[in-house]
Amino acid sequence: MLDKLRLSLGPCQYFWPRTELERFYADVADSPVDIVYLGETVCAKRREFRPEDWAGLGRELRAAGKEVVLSTLTLLESRSEMGMLRRLCENGEFLVEANDVAAIQLMQQLGIPFVTGPSVNIYNAATLGIYRQLGLQRWVMPLELDRRALTGILEATGPNRPETEIFAHGRLPLAWSARCFTARYHDLPKDHCGLRCMEHPEGLSVETQEGDRFLTINGIQTQSGRICNLLPHWRDLRAAGADILRLSPRPRGTTALLHAVANAFAGDGKALASVDAETAETCDGYWFGEPGMHRHHEVTMGDARR
């Protein structure tokens, strides 16, 4: 008998004003989400919430019955960022999601369990086993792996497996650079960027010269243009070994989506209909071993007509 599939909310990838973060997470506290990841994973200059603010918010969410995990910065470049990382890993209250091997190193030295985020490269059972021995409690599968890779890794891992979490809804964090593309767009040097990311609560849309939505720029991060949506396949993800499905915060509709998914998990077959209505901008190719931007169900629908 499989355990119940749980629902998580990933770290907010965007730079929102403090009041917006407070409003957003107040709604999250009242939502049916099981696990909430908090913290800044993209740019150390985004400080509307400081580390103590995230911890304070974490305590409130925990009081509301949520499991809270603090997420680390993904691309670490300076000693000051390492200092922030060290304090986060030593917080003593919350589990930490490592988004870089440096965070794994700190936590295995401290002897505390950890979670790995989607940018830690775990592509096979040997690697998963190494991190497991060092304290890995849960892993978020790398974005470009497919169903076949997941089942292969879990089969080879056997019963002593960590919890498996899959990025199931939101814009995919595809790349990280030293260069800030938002500052470049505004013709500003990175060191004097004016924190312009705040003007783009869901990043900047990048389109091809034919007008196709292609990518999204979000500071030093490049995201998918389309919204990854594996939610209609949630039973298949569960069957393949997923314990937790992750939704990535968006400025609008996130809590409504959390309710819809929880209802779907509880057996409401029509709960995800409103999510399906969004198909024009979604993709799910990675899960099916196709280019990430593809929409697999379109292909199968085409096949069915033939």
Binding site: Y123, L143, E144, L172, L174, W176, S224, P291, G292
Partner: peptide, 21 residues
């Protein structure tokens, strides 16, 4: 390469094939 190597999935997002895989 302007992206952190080994952490860039742009190529597989578009083609299904990436430097990592």
């Amino acid at each position: 390469c302007i992206m952190a190597e080994g952490r860039c999935f742009l190529s597989s997002y578009v083609t299904g094939e990436s430097p990592n895989t």
